[in-house]
């Protein structure tokens, strides 16, 4: 289990993340939602070990993060940042191969092929990374991250995704979140920062709502995703419908010019 206890992080004495507790269990997908500047990316960076929290601790499978080397950490958690820029003319398969850097796997070819087929990037393998479109780049980066935790292992592993669907078309958004939820079977816990509330409700088992650096609500998707909670977090009228014809939960944000109407309804 990935445990974050009492996390606290300030930049110039302004708290970005304040007193956050988080448990990420293998076999579960957690979505982190919240408005811009709520501290989602900072929390993710603290969890991945990029930055050290000033108070509190992070435990990976019971081991404190500060005692794990970068290599040991790479074997149990993979991270996909929001933007990755490549500074040299690498080919696509070379980028994906890099995911296997710290691992000693027997059949690297097979893993690279499998993850690239999974993300539908195998046909791009001999292209130059710089020539890809934004969405293709994001899927290639996802392949690289997946390669890192693709091989079966007994130890629980974790995947941290920062807005993995930000530049993808609707079909690929579903594709990516489907892949992420399939990873649950591999003894992997997934944490994804998501902006699309419908996607979060449809794919995540667990929702964490972040506001002003505080965890406002955390729990199973069906319990936490309510109009009241979402209104409080985003300060914008949002309607949540439960319906079979919507295939589960359907969340709609209302246009600003109808705000008054919606508040009356609520």
């Amino acid at each position: 289990m990935l445990v974050a206890k009492n996390i606290h992080f300030c930049i110039q004495s302004r708290p970005i993340v304040y007193n956050a507790d988080l448990n990420l269990e293998p076999g579960q997908m957690t979505a982190l939602i919240g408005p811009n500047g709520a501290g989602k990316s900072t929390l993710l960076k603290i969890l991945s070990g990029d930055i050290a929290c000033q108070h509190g601790q992070i435990l990976y499978n019971g081991m404190a993060i500060k005692y794990l080397s970068s290599q040991e950490l790479a074997r149990i958690r993979a991270v996909m940042p929001q933007h990755s820029q490549l500074s040299f003319p690498f080919k696509v398969f070379e980028v994906v191969e890099l995911g296997l850097l710290s691992l000693s796997v027997r059949n690297p070819q097979k893993i690279v092929k499998e993850v690239m087929e999974e993300t539908q990037t195998w046909q791009l393998k001999d292209k130059l990374y710089a020539q890809l479109s934004g969405g293709e780049k994001q899927r290639v980066q996802l392949s690289r991250v997946l390669a890192q935790i693709w091989a079966d292992a007994d130890t629980p592993r974790y995947l941290l995704l920062d807005e993995p669907t930000s530049s993808l078309d609707i079909a690929h958004q579903h594709q990516v979140l489907h892949i992420a939820s399939k990873l649950k079977k591999k003894n992997i816990g997934v944490l994804a920062v998501l902006h699309d509330l419908n996607m979060a409700a449809a794919y995540a088992d667990h929702i964490v709502m972040l506001k002003n650096g505080n965890i406002f609500q955390s729990g199973p998707a069906a319990q936490v995703m309510t109009s009241e909670n979402l209104f409080h977090v985003f300060e914008h009228p949002i309607e949540v419908h439960q319906s079979i014809s919507y295939h589960g939960t359907y969340i709609q944000s209302l246009p600003i010019n109808r705000k008054n109407v919606s508040i009356k309804i609520a």
Binding site: S48, E72, V79, P81, L86, F90, L101, S102
Partner: peptide
């Protein structure tokens, strides 16, 4: 080449 934090994520002692 992908990035410093990415290199760290992949297990490089930057």
């Amino acid at each position: 080449a992908i990035g410093e934090s990415e290199a760290f994520h992949m297990g490089v002692f930057v």
